[in-house]
Design a protein around this nucleic acid. Structure first.
Lengths: 245, 245
DNA sequence: CGTTTAATTGAAAGCAGTCAAACTATGTGG
DNA sequence: CCACATAGTTTGACTGCTTTCAATTAAACG
């Protein structure tokens, strides 16, 4: 998972997928003041209760956002792949309501919150694109709620595997027959509202049915359709439909 | 649940809670072209797959947003009380990813999507306020994910009851010792990822512990602290700025 | 290599779901 | 005002998906 020339290039690509950006908009994005950092796995980028300082953009690696119950149970509330901005939601909120952590070793571009806000304020197209990005995140969050609230373990897990596959593919990061999912089974459980033990059993069940092929952390998907069906997956909620408006 | 003089007045109040609005901003909001409608319970305001036409603002009554699995199971992904805009998320997305329905008989002000977008484009303060509203909704969605994914039935239900209490209170709609929650137990289940039967048992359990007092659809909360503790509830995720009671 | 972390597997327990029936409101028509 | 219909609430008995607890195996790491 190597970084591209500019860590912000991926962001430009992602933003312009929904809203067409003029060359000036792209240039302005790429010109954002950014500090590049390489972070170890599990590094906190933001903690619940803290004021966000930066808007981090993932250049390589994975990250996730997470909340804890009073009893200490963890729920991962979103996953992030390279090219995604990690706390657009904090752009206009002064206190974080959740934690943001790297999943793997990751390269992030730290853009000062003020710089990002200025850019959004100056360039309507970018404002629009950021808004769409935030809304799509909201849509994904709703789908997760549905997934966790109303689907059984097998469907739930298959659904997540499908979502990651599609999102990686859209970012041009898919390796064809599958992908590297750098999550422990405990983390998968935390994302799905399941225990690690049950994730293990469910993964094996999916594998036994020939729906996936596992090799270390690599998830192979021999045939898309059966997995998609088992996972009750439809990509509408990802809002990939080309038109913005 | 009577409507206020202007159905948009509540929206102004809600938006200005997070971002100070100038008199001109308020006037512009109140001047939005709006069609007032009274809708029966369970009326659809938007269906998944359809292009949103209006941004509906709830003047009175309750509404919710909902998604269905392929097997037909329903998950309510958000609840809305008077004063809230029902599809800000659709403002910049062209296809709905979920359904929006009234919960009770409700009065809504239908604002054409274009008018709302124009207003947001022209008035930075309103854009800011709308953005914050959207972000807070995202935060609530994350908390719901946590609630459904990692809390047991009793905690989960108590948490929801707390959230509604606090939100109603913030909108000035609380009746002191409790409130009218016009949801069937089946709908509560759909919001919590539980079955109606189990909601019934859990409600009785909360009642048996003296945490709530039920009378029809009225939920009485004799003491806030015990219910809050059982529900593992903290209001940070609602981003009210200060601490409520 | 020894140590630590993650993945597996088995057995038992439990929370929530399912199925079914009875009961209670509310509403309608006669 | 009562008989009947409908929607929602309660309850009970039973099932079962997931969790828990524990122990073993495999992989990752310094």
């Amino acid at each position: 998972m190597a970084a591209l020339p500019s860590p912000l290039a991926l962001l430009v690509r992602k933003l312009s997928r929904h809203v067409p950006l003029e060359p000036e908009d792209r240039a302005a994005l790429l010109a954002l003041p950014a500090t590049l950092r390489t972070l170890d796995p599990s590094t906190y980028l933001l903690r619940e209760g803290d004021p966000p300082q930066y808007c981090a953009v993932l250049a390589s690696g994975f990250a996730y956002r997470q909340k804890l119950t009073g009893e200490g149970a963890r729920q991962i509330v979103s996953l992030h792949i390279p090219g995604e901005a990690l706390d657009l939601q904090s752009l206009y909120l002064d206190v974080a309501d959740h934690n943001i952590q790297t999943l793997t070793r990751a390269e992030v571009a730290l853009v000062p919150r003020a710089a990002m806000r200025d850019l959004v304020q100056t360039r309507p197209a970018i404002a629009h694109a950021v808004m769409v990005e935030i809304l799509v995140e909201g849509s994904i969050s709703r789908e997760w709620t549905l997934n966790i609230g109303r689907r059984d373990a097998q469907t739930r897990l298959a659904h997540l595997l499908c979502e990651v596959a599609v999102r990686l593919d859209a970012q041009g990061l898919s390796g064809g027959e599958g992908y590297e999912l750098p999550m422990t089974q405990e983390q998968l459980g935390d994302a799905l509202g399941l225990t690690a033990v049950h994730v293990n059993r469910t993964l094996k069940a999916l594998e036994a049915q020939g729906l996936i092929v596992r090799n270390r952390r690599h998830v192979g998907i021999p045939q898309w359709t059966p997995l998609r069906d088992v996972g009750d997956f439809t990509s509408r909620y990802l809002h990939f439909g080309r038109q913005p408006s």
